[in-house]
């Protein structure tokens, strides 16, 4: 029995491990770089800090461009997966014949099973060049690594996630409400838009938050398709960088472990952890409260 209890506590140990390692290294980082510089700084160029004389050079570790880049890409991704996932769930749940649903649903879910490195490759090799070329055709300058390419592909990746959560939320709406709407002479789409979706909204919103936390923490697609330039921009056609990309870049070179460059990765990781955790906790609360409403 003691063994069983010990096994169960591994989950807690993992969390503690994550929190401790992140916090411990982050504290070291903030000893060298002021917290406010990190959180409010507008410039991110950790490369300059490699040289001894420039350690902690002011402004080199401002995380704002990374945050903006992350938000930009996440927003693009959610703009794709939100509507598409929701509408796909509606079609499969309300319109599709059984056979169509039985064949198509697993195929769509396969999208979630594809390793992210494959999406990254696809974004870099196919989507980004395609965007650049079509941008050129209409006289728009799209850089070869763009927020748009990464965001679009990430959005596609999260379609099954959003649609399965929307599906749950929609099926949780009591059948009697749908019948009431149809009985009053609503067309199906009117019943869906006017009654079912508003009733399912909290569940869907919770699901979107979960999707957001996924997208924010996604790494490979952005590493391969979004670029490294820490530019402070909201232009989706430009290359931007994200928190996860910088963590990877900072930690995949060879460097001593306690240089601010390495430690910065942990500060970024801590930020990522806190944000995604907050999103998750909120989302799970919303979804839970929503389920209870109809039980």
């Amino acid at each position: 029995m003691a063994v069983l209890i010990a096994a169960s506590s591994v989950a807690i140990l993992t969390t503690v491990g994550i929190v401790l390692s992140l916090i411990f290294e982050s504290i070291q980082f903030f000893r060298q770089i002021p917290f406010t510089d990190f959180v409010f700084g507008l410039h991110w160029s950790p490369q300059t800090a490699i040289r001894e004389d420039q350690v902690g050079a002011s402004g080199a570790f401002g995380a704002i461009p990374l945050l903006v880049g992350t938000l930009l890409i996440s927003a693009i991704a959610l703009c794709v997966s939100g509507p598409v996932g929701l509408m796909a769930a509606i079609y499969l749940g309300e319109y599709a014949s059984r056979r169509f649903r039985a064949t198509v649903k697993p195929i769509l879910e396969a999208l979630a099973g594809i390793p992210t490195v494959v999406y990254g490759f696809f974004a870099a090799i196919v989507v980004a060049p395609m965007l650049r070329n079509s941008g050129e055709a209409i006289g728009l300058e799209v850089s070869s690594e763009s927020a748009l390419a990464a965001g679009l592909v990430m959005g596609i990746m999260t379609i099954p996630f959003v649609s399965s959560i929307s599906d749950d939320a929609i099926t949780a709406v009591p059948e009697s409400l749908k019948e009431a709407a149809l009985g009053l002479g609503s067309t199906r789409s009117e019943a869906i838009r006017n009654v079912i979706l508003p009733a399912a909204l909290p569940g869907i919103a919770g699901g979107l938050l979960l999707a957001a936390s996924r997208v924010i923490g996604e790494t490979m697609i952005v590493v391969m398709a979004a670029g490294l330039a820490a530019k402070l921009t909201l232009n989706p056609f430009e290359a931007v960088t994200t928190v996860t990309v910088q963590i990877v870049t900072l930690l995949t070179g060879d460097q001593e472990f306690d240089s601010p460059k390495t430690l910065a990765a942990f500060a970024l990781g801590l930020m990522l952890f806190v944000v995604t955790l907050a999103l998750n906790v909120t989302a799970l609360r919303i979804v839970k409260a929503y389920r209870e409403q109809y039980d």
Binding site: A11, R214, G217, T219, G269, F273, T276, L277
Partner: peptide, 8 residues
């Protein structure tokens, strides 16, 4: 934990 980004 199931939702913590893998990179963490």
């Amino acid at each position: 934990l199931a939702a913590v980004p893998s990179i963490v």
